[in-house]
Simulated assay, not measured.
Amino acid sequence: MRKLPVFNYSFLSPRFWLIWIGIGTLYILVLLPYPVIHYLGTRIGRITKYFMTNRMRIIRRNLELCFPNLPSQEQKNLFNKNCESIGMGVFETGMAWFWSEHRIKRWFKINGLDSITKARKKNQGILLIGMHFFTLELGARILGMLNPGIGVYRPNNNPLLNWLQTKGRLRSNKTMLDRTNIKGMIKALQHGEIVWYAPDHDYGYKNSVFTPLFAVSNAASTIGTYILTKIAKPAIVPFVARRLPNVLGYELLILPNQQNEIPLDTNINMIKHINKVIEQVILLAPDQYMWLHRRFKTRPPGESPLY
């Protein structure tokens, strides 16, 4: 098992000073009242479209691929709101890492917690199906405050950022597992733990099947969910932390347990169902989803690239 990162005095060297300045600035900014944070975050997000040009092309392409029948003006509106969420995502990461429990609870309302409570009463492992929303870090923090669990993550290539994100996530959770550590996830689930897992990205050909996602008929989708479910037999609980309109804060929305609804006869049928769940969750807050990733970069043999 990969060891969790620990603080290294080399992080104080000059090559990391810009990161420390950025983190220090973020820490100070998230001390501001939430309405001010919201104002700054959305305005900064609007500016990103003029600098992150490659990512802007990816966002537009993903929206075209997933919602081809959405009128052009609605696609444009969704694109603009998504840009605002990019700016908010930076602040929301800082809020997740630096806010006190009292302040987070003040700005969150929670719906559907009984889905977790019922599974916990059965001493059953719970596979929390999360998606890559800009509110991802906040969602992990509030869930950990309610029911501490185990996060699944991809270590950051920058050692300081890797330490910071791990330290932030462990403020309210037990430990972290590398996303490649399937055996560790299975063991945790079999011991009744809560494991946060995100199956919504394109992880390449290996251990993936091609199944529909929105209007894309062949989306490379990880079979990790199938392996974990088949062996550990956990409750399958999707969730999303979404930002509410009118600066009202956030809602942690926990959906019903999917365990009895998921077909396990083949991995393709199971992942088709999971992708439908992913669609359902994304549509709860499509403007807050990370459309800036090349979700459909892996194509079946012979198919042309989509980007």
Rank of each mutant, 00 (worst) to 15 (best):
D265Y: 14
L253K: 07
L264Q: 08
W291S: 04
N260V: 10
V277R: 03
T266C: 10
L283T: 04
A285N: 07
I282C: 00
Q259I: 13
H293K: 01
Y289R: 01
M270G: 05
N269P: 10
M290C: 09
D287P: 12
V281S: 00
Q258R: 04
D265N: 11
N257A: 04
Q258F: 06
L255F: 15
E261K: 14
L264C: 11
Q258Y: 06
L292T: 05
V281A: 03
N269E: 15
Q288P: 11
L292G: 06
W291L: 00
L252H: 01
L264S: 08
I278M: 08
D287H: 15
I274A: 05
L284D: 03
L255T: 07
P263H: 05
N260F: 06
I274G: 13
L283I: 03
I262W: 06
I262C: 02
I282K: 05
L255V: 06
N257R: 05
F296P: 03
L253H: 07
I271Y: 13
Q280T: 09
V281W: 00
N257F: 07
I274V: 10
F296I: 00
D287Q: 15
L292F: 12
V277H: 02
L253Y: 13
I271W: 11
D265I: 14
I268F: 13
I271H: 15
P263W: 11
E279L: 01
L252E: 02
L283C: 05
P286D: 00
H293R: 08
D287C: 08
K276Q: 08
P256F: 06
R294D: 10
K276W: 08
M270K: 13
L252R: 06
K276F: 01
L252N: 02
I268T: 11
L283Q: 04
F296H: 04
R295A: 02
D265F: 14
P263I: 01
Q280C: 09
D287K: 04
L292Q: 11
A285L: 06
M270H: 14
L255R: 07
P286I: 03
W291D: 05
D287G: 13
L283M: 01
Q258L: 07
I274H: 09
P256L: 03
H273Q: 11
I268W: 12
V281R: 00
K272G: 06
Q288R: 10
L252P: 10
N267Y: 12
L253M: 12
M290R: 09
M270E: 11
K272S: 08
I254A: 08
Q258W: 10
N269M: 13
Q259R: 14
I282E: 00
L284R: 03
N269I: 15
L255I: 09
I254W: 02
V277W: 05
I262S: 10
R295N: 06
H273G: 07
Q288Y: 08
N260K: 09
Q280G: 13
F296A: 03
V277A: 00
Q258I: 04
K272N: 15
I274K: 10
I262A: 15
L255Y: 14
N260A: 10
N267V: 13
I271P: 12
T266Q: 13
N269A: 08
I282G: 00
H293P: 07
W291H: 05
E279A: 01
D287T: 11
V277D: 05
V281M: 05
W291A: 04
L264F: 11
E261R: 13
L252G: 10
L252V: 14
N267Q: 15
N260P: 14
M290H: 05
K276D: 08
E261S: 07
